[in-house]
């Protein structure tokens, strides 16, 4: 599309003088015909008809570009827009997995707000975000600054930090489970050293389970976001650091006064991305805390609750859809917050 736009030049009716036309620009012209029409409807249409009459080389219909767009559009509509619209519709019904529902207005939403399980899950999701996002904004930056140094063998460190990203969530979960269980690595060491007298309930206490899951999420995200920061750090001009060093700024001062402001847009991006994924967390809690989501379901997050409500034979599709919409709204709020922050940064 953009290549075509450029070939067409300025989008004014005046640029369409028949004599200056090549077949290439003709193709481009019909693409822009609609834009032109907006400015000079009647004249544009007449000019266009005249043009098509006198070249007659390539006949192009109005729908040709849509034909090219169709495969992508159909996919997006079928697998993103349509399911989304359907979820909104379903959230106002009492549909079940195998049974269509009837319209029930806001009953599902009212039920959610009255359901203590929903508030626990929403609270856990937000708590997850509040703890995980700062960790994932700052720790990978620190790591990136460390591995940015050009010393022999640094590639090994970079790869090592990236490894958890490649490992599947299930593998990561199982490893951490063996580390954190009551007879796992950490507890065995602590008990042997008499640091604790009872195993720490990393996986059997709702709050500790959430914390454990957060640790896994952060550990797994470190390498991923580190790569983002490495790219951003590469764009910080060396001259700035040089100038600051000449002015007598130390390493710490240069980090806060040069590096941080320079990578700030990236920090906001990382913040937004990690916030969205924090609100979607499911796997870590499922693997560490089992099907019930912690004892008594106390460590359930919103996606966890949605899955539990919507799955299986008695799956309450309507209610699960309403919960999904609430999760979407929550995500939207935090995304807009991130955008607002980045806007404020630009001005």
């Amino acid at each position: 599309m953009s290549a075509v736009d450029e070939a067409a030049g300025p989008k004014t009716p005046g640029s369409k003088t028949p004599g200056s036309k090549t077949p290439g620009s003709k193709a481009a012209e019909s693409e822009n015909g609609r834009a032109a029409r907006r400015e000079a409807a009647g004249r544009g249409r007449r000019a266009r008809a005249a043009m098509e009459a006198d070249t007659g080389l390539v006949h192009r219909s109005w729908w040709t570009p849509y034909l090219f767009l169709a495969p992508g559009l159909v996919m997006v509509c079928l697998f993103s827009i349509w399911p989304f619209a359907n979820t909104v519709i379903l959230s106002f019904t009492d549909a079940r997995i195998l049974r269509g529902g009837t319209f029930v207005g806001f009953a599902n939403y009212a039920r959610a707000f009255a359901d203590p399980g929903f508030w626990v899950a929403a609270g856990n999701s937000v708590l997850y975000l509040v703890v995980v996002v700062p960790c994932l904004v700052f720790l990978p930056l620190a790591l990136a600054v460390l591995v940015q140094t050009k010393i022999p063998g640094i590639g090994i460190f970079r790869s090592a930090f990236y490894t958890p990203v490649i490992a599947s969530a299930v593998v990561v979960g199982l490893i951490w489970q063996w580390v954190l269980r009551s007879d796992g690595l950490v507890n065995t060491v602590f008990l042997k050293l008499s640091i604790v007298s009872e195993p720490i309930p990393f996986l059997t206490d709702s709050t500790m389970l959430l914390v454990s899951a957060m640790i896994v999420t952060v550990w797994k995200g470190l390498g991923y976001y580190m790569v983002f920061y490495l790219a951003a750090l590469g764009n910080v001009p060396a001259s700035l650091h040089e100038a600051a060093a000449i002015d007598g700024a130390g390493t710490v001062r240069r980090f806060f006064s040069i590096t941080v402001p320079q990578v700030k847009p990236m920090m906001l991006l990382v913040g937004t991305l990690s916030a969205i994924s924090a609100l979607r967390v499911f796997t870590e809690i499922y693997i560490l805390g089992g099907e019930s989501g912690g004892p008594g379901g106390g460590a359930r997050t919103l996606p966890f609750l949605i899955r539990q409500v919507g799955l299986g034979f008695a799956g309450e599709t309507g209610y699960a859809s309403a919960l999904s919409i609430l999760l979407f709204l929550l995500t939207l709020v935090f995304s807009l917050l991130g955008r607002r922050l980045s806007k404020g940064d630009e001005t």
Binding site: E291, P295, G297, Q308, V309, L311, G312, F313
Partner: peptide
Amino acid sequence: WTNQVGDAVVREMQKAIK
């Protein structure tokens, strides 16, 4: 005793057993 019923019962049992 659907999945949902099982989950609901199990949640209460877990709290009690703990």
